[in-house]
């Protein structure tokens, strides 16, 4: 039997008795960042494939909301900083080994790009929108000429944004639950899935809803496979990761994760999509709402549980 004590009484706030340096701001941002990445990916993809008409919500409507989602996410990131007035230091350096730095610079590129894309399509959400000033109209006309280049930018940057939300966590080997390279693809897939769900929620075209639903079904299937793969990896890994996985396999997060994230957020929406594909009448908003809820909860649980996982010594 072993017992370890801090006899000098260490109790550093946010560190002891267990790490809780990242509270709600980071998981909420990871959700919004992943969601924005998913929406922008489909916008760029369907534009480049010339399917703007069929997927008009994906290309034109949903991206109008992205600058708002990203702005809220950035606000959350700012709220998380403990030395707020120095935030601009992110942009006086670039550190190739730091996922946080990659994320900061990616946001600096994707934020204006998403704003321009939203501006070009704003009439699809606000039909009576008027730019009022001639110079504003001139700018819009100028960017209309470069839509293809911008769509490529959206596809590339959204993949970086989506995968970085996972790599941000997986790069920390001090937290065994996060320290798996599956987390990058897993968060990217989850982000794309929430993006597809968002598009289904806002789409008025049955054909588009059907196709996006099928895409979401595929993404959910990949996500389920990645989650199972992640736990298989933990079980086959060292004691530290076996202990980390125990939190989800009998430990304190078992019920929340497997009932709410896995079943309600992935399996049930997948079944609903299958029923819908078979022509059964299911209210179209249930599956995407569950996917969005599951995606949000998944990030909260992963960020929280990861900080509880640790090396054993």
């Amino acid at each position: 039997m072993r017992e370890e004590l801090f006899v000098s009484g260490r109790s550093n706030p946010l560190i002891d008795p267990h790490l809780e340096i990242w509270e709600w701001q980071i998981p909420a941002y990871l959700f919004l960042g992943g969601l924005a990445a998913g929406i922008l990916f489909f916008a760029g993809l369907f534009y480049l494939r010339g399917k703007e008409e069929k997927f008009s919500t994906a290309v034109r409507v949903a991206p109008v909301f992205v600058p708002v989602l990203l702005a809220i996410g950035l606000l959350f990131l700012f709220l998380d900083l403990k030395h707020k007035l120095y935030f601009w230091r992110l942009y006086t350096s670039f550190s190739i080994e730091s996922p946080t730095s990659w994320g900061a610079w990616t946001l600096l590129l994707i934020m204006p790009l998403s704003m321009i894309w939203a501006a070009l399509n704003i009439e699809s959400v606000f039909p009576r929108w008027d730019w009022k000033f001639q110079w504003a109209k001139d700018i819009i006309e100028f960017f209309k000429k470069y839509k293809t280049e911008m769509a490529w930018g959206l596809v590339v940057l959204s993949i970086i944004l989506g995968i970085y939300t996972g790599i941000l966590l997986s790069a920390f080997n001090a937290r065994p639950l996060w320290n798996t390279s599956i987390l990058g693809p897993l968060f990217l897939t989850s982000g794309l899935s929430t993006g597809a769900a968002f598009i289904v929620l806002f789409s008025r075209s049955k054909a588009e809803r059907h196709s996006m639903g099928q895409i979401d079904l595929m993404l959910i299937t990949i996500e389920i496979a990645l989650i199972i793969h992640m736990f298989m990896g933990f079980q086959a890994s060292t004691q530290v990761q076996i202990e980390a996985a125990k939190m989800f396999l009998g430990g304190q997060f078992t019920a929340t994760f497997w009932v709410f994230v896995f079943s309600l957020g992935l399996v049930i929406p997948a079944l609903l999509e299958i029923l819908e594909a078979k022509g059964k009448k299911v209210p179209y908003y249930i599956a995407p709402a569950l996917v969005l809820f599951g995606g949000l909860l998944f990030r909260f649980i992963m960020v929280h549980a990861g900080q509880l996982s640790r090396w054993l010594y």
Binding site: I15, D80, L81, K82, Y86, T100
Partner: peptide, 10 residues
Amino acid sequence: CIGCGACITA
């Protein structure tokens, strides 16, 4: 330092 907490987590 911006106080992002990455180093503390690392």
